[in-house]
Write a protein that binds this DNA or RNA. Structure first.
Lengths: 150, 150
DNA sequence: ACAAAAAGTTAGCCGTCACTAACTTTATAC
DNA sequence: GTATAAAGTTAGTGACGGCTAACTTTTTGT
């Protein structure tokens, strides 16, 4: 029954891929929030609920809920009616998410995708790119981009 | 106050990107299901709840709920205790999802990403790739892949 | 300094997508 | 042809991520 075994193995691998996608979904929101919080702090000095709401296109109430979850999960700290800060873990997650984001975006740009589309697609894609694929992106950028240094 | 206006515009664009990602999320599950249903029908003659459950790595009960939603949304038909069929709309969605899936996968393979990683990443990425980016992927494949017909 | 506006919070709601447990229906194996 | 196994269904639960409405706190403008 090697055929059956093969089929079962394939189903198993298929299922594992889907489980990985589901897991990625659970961290997406957290990554988007900390990335934006880091940016707002960097550019404006602080991250407020109302700014996150505007930049994410959701209501204040939604931001509040999410920030509480992030706090529960040790990514941010905030006291009532005050602005939001990143913990060390939050800062690290923000930094790695940001690096990945710009790599994906730059890769799409290098492929000839337009600015706004690259930015938009990167937002969705970045959460689903493995380390191996990121490496491939980097390799491609190095191979094609060097406009000056060649 | 052009600075403020610029900032507002940027925030607005940012928010729109996130809204697009959120919309994509709502269709992801539907796409994964119809794609798999089409495949199972093609390869085994029918799509049963238990097979979907195994291939997706979820329980029968979860598949049942989702299939009912898909039926409500006009993508599949099924009678109690019987196998699942695609509607015309479901078939079309399955076909376009499949095309997109193999394009993304082949693109990753062409970049030098390994088989299993390409397959896994494609599963997550495919739902977030715009038509423009797909075109860029196709262009890249044509430019690099032509092993025979050149 | 105080009224009005802005920001933040809380409560309650809803849909999605998971789960388990208990049940019914269909298929299978004598 | 009936008992058992497999498949499918239903009911109830829970987390997440969104919403509105009502409320409180802070900020702002005069």
């Amino acid at each position: 029954m090697t055929d059956t075994d093969d089929r079962e193995q394939e189903a198993k691998r298929h299922a594992e891929r889907f489980q990985r996608v589901r897991e990625a979904h659970q961290t997406e929101v957290a990554e988007d929030y900390v990335e934006l919080i880091a940016r707002l702090i960097d550019e404006t000095g602080e991250a407020r609920v109302v700014d996150l709401a505007v930049w994410l296109g959701v209501t204040n109430a939604t931001v509040n809920n999410t920030v509480q979850r992030l706090q529960r999960d040790g990514l941010v700290t905030s006291k009532p009616y005050r602005s939001i800060f990143l913990t060390e873990a939050g800062r690290e997650l923000a930094e790695s998410s940001h690096q990945r984001h710009i790599l994906v975006r730059d890769f799409l740009l290098a492929l000839g995708v337009g600015e706004e589309t690259a930015e938009a697609d990167a937002e969705g894609i970045e959460h689903h790119v493995s380390a191996e694929t990121l490496t491939a992106f980097r390799r491609h950028l190095k191979a094609t981009k060097p406009k000056k240094g060649n």
